[in-house]
C-alpha cells in the first residue's frame, strides 16, 4: 500500500501545532484511502522535535537533518522534502496550510509529479470516490474536489482538524537522515518581530471588528462608539480594512494578523473570509451584523443580525442609552 506522508512543520526545535492537525487529517484520510502513515520532520536540530512527534502520535518519523533549514526558503524546503519523499512513493503528501506550507506545497507537487489540492477543510467519500472540501468565493461557496488518480500533495487548513488528545501506547521509531540541500538562488535574511498593540487585542474581553462592509473610513466612529458600550473592549479590523489604510495592521484579525478569542466578538460588515475566520472563530460569543444574509460570517456566528450597520449601530446605542437611564 502506498503510504501517506505528513511533512511536519517545525519551529524552534518543536513541532508546530498545525503538524498535529495534519496528522489528524492524515489519520482520517487513511480510513478512506488505506496506507501506512509516515511523518517527515525536516529542519535543523530536528532530533528533539522528531522524538516528540513519534511519542505524541505513535507514527514512525523520518528526521531529516539539514543545517540550511534554520531559516525558511521555499527552495531548500522543496529540494529537501522532494528528495526525502520521492523514494517513499506515497499516494498523498499532507502539509499544514501555513504561510510556509502554501508557499512550498505547489512547487513540491511539481517536483514529485503530483497533483495539488490546497486549504482542505473536510474530507468524505461519495459512491466510493474520495472528495476534499475547501472554501471558494471568499467562503460563500464550498468546493468538493476529487484528487487525481496518481500522487497528490494536500494542504490542510489550520483549525479544521483539531489535534486529538490521547497519547499512543508506543512511540513510533525515529530514523535520522541527513540532507545537504542548500539554497542557491534564494537567501534568507531573517524575520521581523510582530507589531505593537498585540496586547490590547489579546487582553480585551470584547472585540468590535470592522470589515469592508462599513463602507467608508468615517464609519469607524460608529464602530468605536459601539465598542465604548463595553468595558475592556478593543477595536479590530479585517484584512480589507487594514489594506484600505482605515486601521493600522496591528489591529488586523486573521491568519496574517492576530488570533483572538475574547468573551464577545462583534463582527460589523465583515463577510468572513477563511483567513479572517481562522483568527476569531474560537471567540466565546460571536455576533455578526451584515447586510448580506449569505455572508459566511454567519456560519460561525452565534447571533446574526441582517441590517445596515450605519442605521443599526446608532439604534443599538440609543436603545442601550434608554435602558441604562430607565
Amino acid at each position: 500500500m502506498e503510504p501517506i506522508v505528513i511533512a511536519a512543520e517545525l519551529d524552534n526545535g518543536t513541532a508546530h501545532p498545525a503538524s498535529l492537525e495534519a496528522v489528524c487529517f492524515a489519520r482520517a484520510l487513511s480510513r478512506l484511502a488505506p496506507g501506512p502513515l509516515v511523518i517527515i520532520a525536516a529542519g535543523r536540530d530536528v532530533r528533539m522535535a522528531a522524538d516528540g512527534l513519534a511519542a505524541a502520535t505513535g507514527i514512525d518519523v523520518i528526521a531529516v537533518e539539514n543545517e540550511h533549514m534554520a531559516e525558511y526558503t521555499g527552495e531548500t524546503w522543496k529540494k529537501t522534502l522532494a528528495a526525502s519523499i520521492a523514494p517513499l512513493a506515497p499516494r498523498f503528501v499532507v502539509i499544514p496550510h501555513s504561510a510556509r506550507g502554501y508557499d512550498f506545497a505547489p512547487g513540491l507537487a511539481v517536483r514529485l509529479g503530483a497533483g495539488c489540492v490546497t486549504a482542505i477543510e473536510a474530507l468524505s467519500e461519495r459512491e466510493g470516490v474520495l472528495e476534499f472540501t475547501r472554501l471558494a468565493f471568499g467562503g460563500k461557496a464550498l468546493m468538493d474536489i476529487v484528487p487525481p488518480r496518481g500522487r497528490s500533495v494536500l494542504t490542510v487548513q489550520p483549525g479544521a482538524f483539531p489535534a486529538e488528545a490521547p497519547a499512543p501506547a508506543a512511540p513510533g521509531t525515529v530514523t535520522l537522515t541527513r540532507s545537504t540541500a542548500a539554497p542557491e538562488r534564494s537567501r534568507p535574511l531573517g524575520r521581523t518581530a510582530s507589531g505593537p498593540e498585540t496586547a490590547s487585542l489579546n487582553e480585551a474581553e470584547v472585540i468590535v471588528a470592522a470589515g469592508r462592509g462599513i463602507g467608508k473610513k468615517e464609519n469607524l466612529e460608529l464602530i468605536r462608539a459601539l465598542a465604548a458600550l463595553f468595558p475592556r473592549s478593543a477595536l479590530a479590523g479585517s484584512r480589507a480594512v487594514c489594506d484600505a489604510g482605515w486601521l493600522e495592521y496591528a489591529r488586523q484579525v486573521g491568519v496574517t494578523g492576530k488570533t483572538v478569542s475574547p468573551r464577545l466578538y462583534i463582527a460589523c460588515g465583515i463577510s468572513g473570509t477563511a483567513q479572517h475566520l481562522a483568527g476569531m472563530k474560537n471567540s466565546q460569543t460571536i455576533v455578526a451584523i451584515n447586510t448580506d444574509a449569505g455572508a459566511p460570517i454567519f456560519n460561525v456566528a452565534h447571533v446574526g443580525v441582517v441590517e445596515d450597520l450605519t442605521r443599526f449601530i446608532p439604534l443599538l446605542i440609543e436603545t442601550r442609552g434608554k435602558a441604562v437611564k430607565g
Binding site: 507537487a109 511539481v110 509529479g113 503530483a114 497533483g115 495539488c116 489540492v117 461519495r126 470516490v129 472528495e131 471558494a136 460563500k140 461557496a141 464550498l142 468546493m143 468538493d144 474536489i145 476529487v146 484528487p147 487525481p148 488518480r149 496518481g150 500522487r151 497528490s152 449569505g294
Partner: peptide, 11 residues
C-alpha cells in the same frame, strides 16, 4: 502532473 476535478460547487 495529475489534474484534480471539481465534483461540485455548493453553498
Amino acid at each position: 502532473n495529475g489534474i484534480e476535478r471539481l465534483a461540485r460547487l455548493r453553498l
